[in-house]
């Protein structure tokens, strides 16, 4: 089971060919466990951040609560979720909710700062030209805030890929399983293939998701590119 299967690249190839179905399903669940909380977090953060940018008194409690949630280690949050949500310990919903909480804690402040950073003269000019408040938000403030918000999204999505793997240690099926499997298989001697495959896939997934956000950002902010047509 261990030394015979060998370490090194040939071992990796063998491991992948014999476990490809499992690996693919883990990769898939890892992907959606990483992405869905970011989408939920964004949807929740936009109105929260807007409120904090619009009403000054909302901002300090938002930052404080966000900071507090941030201090909670992810493993602790995964473990506590069942007793809060009434779910089973291995339910992926725990992971989704916990990571959504982190994303909101990060993004709500980012959205508030980004909307607050729209240059005053631009905002005034838009109002002077007759934009209503909601129109200004959608057509002026939000587009200008996109680069800052996507920067926050990049941090969130890359962090999530690593955090989802930690959920593997309590048995949620995703790429983290490759690490726990590798750990158990190494009890009599090092057996690298699942661990290496896991690290490579996690890094690749993080980079791909980061790239997706960058592409979306570029598509939404054509005016920031050199030689953009107007």
């Amino acid at each position: 089971m261990n030394a015979a299967a060998g370490g090194g690249p040939p071992g990796v190839v063998e491991y992948v060919t014999s476990h490809h179905a499992e690996i693919l399903s883990w990769l898939w669940s890892h992907t959606w466990l990483s992405v869905v909380p970011v989408l939920i977090g964004l949807v929740v953060s936009l109105p929260l951040g807007y409120l904090a940018a619009r009403h000054r008194w909302v901002y300090p409690p938002l930052v404080t609560v966000g900071g507090l949630l941030y201090t909670i280690p992810s493993l602790a949050l995964f473990v506590v979720m069942p007793s809060i949500l009434g779910t089973r310990i291995l339910d992926p919903v725990n992971v989704v909710v916990a990571l959504s909480v982190y994303t909101v804690a990060l993004l709500a402040r980012v959205v508030a700062d980004a909307l607050g950073a729209v240059p005053e003269d631009v905002a005034q000019a838009a109002t002077a030209m007759g934009y209503t408040s909601p129109q200004r938000l959608l057509k002026v403030d939000l587009p200008l805030a996109v680069p800052v918000i996507t920067a926050g999204l990049r941090v969130a999505v890359v962090a999530n890929v690593s955090l989802v793997a930690i959920a593997g240690t309590i048995g949620v099926p995703e790429l983290g399983q490759l690490f726990t499997n590798g750990f158990q298989l190494s009890s009599d001697g090092p057996y690298y293939p699942p661990i290496v495959v896991g690290v490579v896939l996690c890094v690749a997934l993080a980079l791909v998701l980061d790239l997706v956000v960058v592409v979306v950002d570029r598509a939404l902010t054509p005016w920031l590119r050199k030689g953009a047509r107007t």
Binding site: S162, L178, T180, G182, F183, P190, I195, L207
Partner: peptide, 19 residues
């Protein structure tokens, strides 16, 4: 380094180093 999965790195280093 942030893109590295913390847990995976921990297991990898443990398996490599501890023996």
């Amino acid at each position: 380094l942030r893109a590295l999965p913390t847990f995976g790195l921990l297991i990898l280093l443990y398996v490599v180093i501890s023996p």
